[in-house]
Amino acid sequence: MKNINDENLKELLKKFYDEEHSMEFIHNMEFAEKILSATREPAPSREVIENIKRRISKGNSYKRYWELSAAAAILIIITLSAVNIFRDEPAHYQGTITATQWESSNFSIDDNEFFAINNSIEDVSEQMLTLSEENNNELANSIVELETDMIDLENNFWKG
């Protein structure tokens, strides 16, 4: 009987069966082993084996192709990004806040662009505010004038 991986079968069986059943178990195993080894072992045909190898090899080629394509794509993207970063020198923007005043350390290469955008937003915001205040004053004057006119009109109406 096979002694697999130094397995002590008798010891193992003792844990689960009494002496009689352990012996019966071992005899049945020996019997099955004898029968199985006496019969002709079913084997796959050479053709089947070659077919399996072909399928694996084909699958492997496809896998490699995709891996290489993905790696090439990543490399191209990295190269293009690197070329763009080093080719474009950071533009010098005039802003109300200087780069040194900026507290965040998260921006390095894009600081100037960020300041420019930020300053533009602030400029537009100020202009809007001024316009709004001017408009508000004009509007307020118009309302006062309209009210005066209305009062005059009302008085004149009752006077006939």
């Binding site: 694996i56 492997n60 490699r64």
Partner: peptide
């Protein structure tokens, strides 16, 4: 590592035993 020769050897090593298992 994706070597075809290694795949081929693995198939040679196990195909007989596992085919017998499936067939039985």
């Amino acid at each position: 590592k994706g070597q075809n020769s290694a795949y081929s050897e693995l198939v040679d090593c196990y195909s007989q035993k596992i085919y017998a298992y499936f067939y039985r």
